[in-house]
């Protein structure tokens, strides 16, 4: 088993002008991931762009891995343009993903934008009743909604412009939900943009709710060597690629 392996692109589904799902099949023995872990994908065989791109694992089985990719720059454009049959090499699974809830805890999932990629495996893990608060800018920015509805009956959608579901963000929706119902020993699992993460951490702190939050930072090596991807925690700088990407909400400096 190796965490550095060759693979073949077996599918590339363009979901919109900004998002695609890349499907790959490893050509060598590889290690199975668990929810919240990520891979570093080489985006081309050339030296520019140079660095690999970190992507959360969306779905996996014996035959392959799937990644939900948001178009952001040159690297993700190359990943968007990949064709079935092309070769790609991957490093992973990397990092610490989401821990299991402790006895009696009720998991609540929160995803913002492409953060759904990181949270998605937990919907499968905790099916069929898990509460998921999924927010995006607009209805067109919500992905995998039909698949998610097949996995949980407890989806709470929000959009900033109100074009689908609650008008506002996922944290506001969750806050209103918590005010109006009693969830026994809630524990939050979350991944989203920086603004969402910040307001979520504040809310969890005020209410004394535990959480596991996936963070993002620019990354080079992915194996803890370069110290490029650190975030500030109550115990000093910690590496997103090694101690993270999922951190205990109480540890993240705000």
């Amino acid at each position: 088993m190796s965490r550095f392996f060759q693979a073949e692109v077996t599918g590339n589904v363009l979901l919109s002008r900004t998002h695609n799902i890349l499907k790959i099949t490893p050509l060598q023995p590889h290690t199975m991931p668990y929810p919240g872990q990520f891979y570093l994908l080489r985006v081309s065989g050339t030296l520019d762009p140079l660095l690999r791109r970190p992507l959360s694992i969306l779905r996996w089985d014996e035959d392959g891995l799937e990644f939900l990719i948001r178009l952001k720059g040159r690297g993700t454009l190359l990943l968007r343009n990949m064709k079935p049959g092309e070769r790609i090499d991957l490093l992973g699974p990397l990092g610490n993903g989401y821990p299991e809830p402790v006895d009696g805890e009720t998991p609540i999932l929160v995803a913002g934008g492409v953060g759904i990629a990181s949270v998605y495996p937990l919907i499968e893990r905790f099916r069929p009743e898990v509460r998921l608060f999924y927010g995006a800018v607009s209805a067109g920015d919500l992905y995998l909604v039909d698949e998610i509805r097949g996995l949980t009956r407890n989806l709470h959608v929000s959009t900033d412009d109100g074009s689908m579901g609650f008008r506002g963000n996922a944290v506001e929706r969750l806050t209103a939900y918590l005010d109006g119902s009693s969830v026994p020993s809630p524990v939050v699992y979350a991944c989203g943009p920086e603004g969402m993460t910040k307001s979520l951490l504040g809310m969890l702190r005020r209410r004394g709710i535990p959480g596991h939050v996936s963070l993002e930072e620019r990354m080079a090596c992915g194996v803890g060597a370069c110290l490029g991807c650190v975030v500030e925690t109550v115990r000093g700088y910690r590496r997103v690629c090694k101690e993270g990407p999922v951190f205990d909400a109480r540890e993240i400096a705000v």
Partner: peptide
């Protein structure tokens, strides 16, 4: 040493900048 605050790295054409 604690090192510098993030962001510490950025990709540039055929290279990268670091300030660890």
């Amino acid at each position: 040493r604690e090192g510098n605050p993030p962001p510490r790295i950025v990709e540039t054409p055929a290279g990268m900048l670091n300030a660890i």
